[in-house]
Design a protein around this nucleic acid. Structure first.
Lengths: 222, 222
DNA sequence: GGGTGTGAATGAGTTCACAGCT
DNA sequence: AGCTGTGAACTCATTCACACCC
């Protein structure tokens, strides 16, 4: 029941990292015990949802008491396989790619970038954080060699599908995509896309389209 | 019916930018007409979902024909209020913040960064792309002055809530949050968070926790 | 008393399937 | 013939509400 139960909804899986994150902050604050309603309030979901989500994986709480923060955090981390460091390939070493390589958050959380790829001949052979930049064509060789099955794609939209196809052929099973385009992957490969512009566009729907009018008549203060 | 219909599910709104993006690529390819099944195949959703989503806003297609790509794109852009440029405040000018300022994708898509804020005294008064870096304390003054109601938060987790509170008091109604923490906002404010680590963690659930074993016995090539 | 875990009820979102238009 | 727009059916997700336990 713990190994890859396909009946657990993906939407539940996507909430687990938020639970882990929040539990981590709670340990940092010295909180040892938390109830589903306290945790829910902190995350912005209902207590029932927290309890239902966790119930897919086991019984982690104590009636009348709540959850032991450290214990629950360990459990969630186990479920997500966060116990060891995952090696990651980064494709695309432009402005965004460089910011990603230098961001310490990945390594701190167990995702260590171990190989860099780009197609720009001016970048090839260059170094970032002690790693050589290899051409796309080296993907089929280097990725199996290093045993990587996680990749970050930070290339322009027009080469994203090509890059993703190469990665998948090389054995990658999880892809974080920064390119603003929908990429096709087979069912046994996971992909998540981060598109800041799409996120902004989905919020402007709710905004008054004429901000000048709003600021002029002072309606901006709620 | 076109102005802020609250019965339209947010999940539909969040798909519209993807439709707009895909329709934009289609115009670039010279495609003039598209059916719901073609568009769905491209995006990875069903034809029925496309038709249902669009039906919340009007009747944009022609039976037996499909949708005119340019017309549908214009309609979706109107719905999302993408017709003009939105002024944006950026809070946090660290590595990530700098990458954001220099990324041309925001301006190209109508989100123009017009003010920079940070709390680090070493950065204050400095410039990025011709804009001065102001202290957090200037938020209540500068944001209403420029009439901004969209903001990007790229500060460390520990100051995210404080910054968001300041922004909201200054009139911001839409926030793109890069800090890996859940931030509380009132119901009339929209917030979307981008957390690359959380995205990766939600995928490792599906992966074999021991990649060494996988690469050793060659199971990576499917 | 306080809080979990979970059947049952409800609500939300997706897909079916087809009438109707071109 | 081909494809939209949409009631109706269905599936999936959330919330209710309570037995049970600490």
């Amino acid at each position: 029941m713990s190994i890859n139960d396909p009946e657990i909804p993906d939407i539940v899986i996507r909430r687990l990292p938020i639970y882990a994150q929040t539990l981590t902050y709670l340990t940092g604050e010295g909180v040892t015990t938390v109830s589903s309603s306290e945790l829910g309030a902190r995350i912005g979901v209902t207590a029932a949802q927290i309890r239902r989500d966790l119930s897919y994986f086991g019984e982690f709480g104590k009636q009348g008491k709540g959850y032991n923060v450290q214990f629950l955090l360990n459990q969630v981390r186990d479920i997500l396989h966060l116990g060891h460091s995952w090696g990651v390939a980064l494709v695309g070493v432009g402005l965004l790619g460089k910011a990603i390589v230098h961001y310490t958050g990945f390594k701190d959380k167990g995702f260590e970038i171990k190989a860099l790829f780009d197609s720009d001949t001016r970048k090839l052979g260059g170094e970032e954080m002690g790693m050589t930049v290899n051409h796309f064509s080296k993907i089929p060789e280097i990725i199996p060699e290093l045993g990587l099955n996680v990749a970050i794609v930070a290339v322009p939209a027009h080469s994203a599908q090509e890059v993703v196809d190469l990665l998948i052929k090389a054995g990658v099973k999880a892809i974080l995509n920064y390119a603003p385009i929908t990429v096709q992957v087979p069912a046994d490969v996971r992909i998540r896309s981060l598109d800041p512009v799409a996120a902004l566009q989905s919020m402007t729907y709710y905004l008054n389209p004429d901000p000048k009018a709003r600021s002029r008549n002072g309606k901006h203060s709620k």
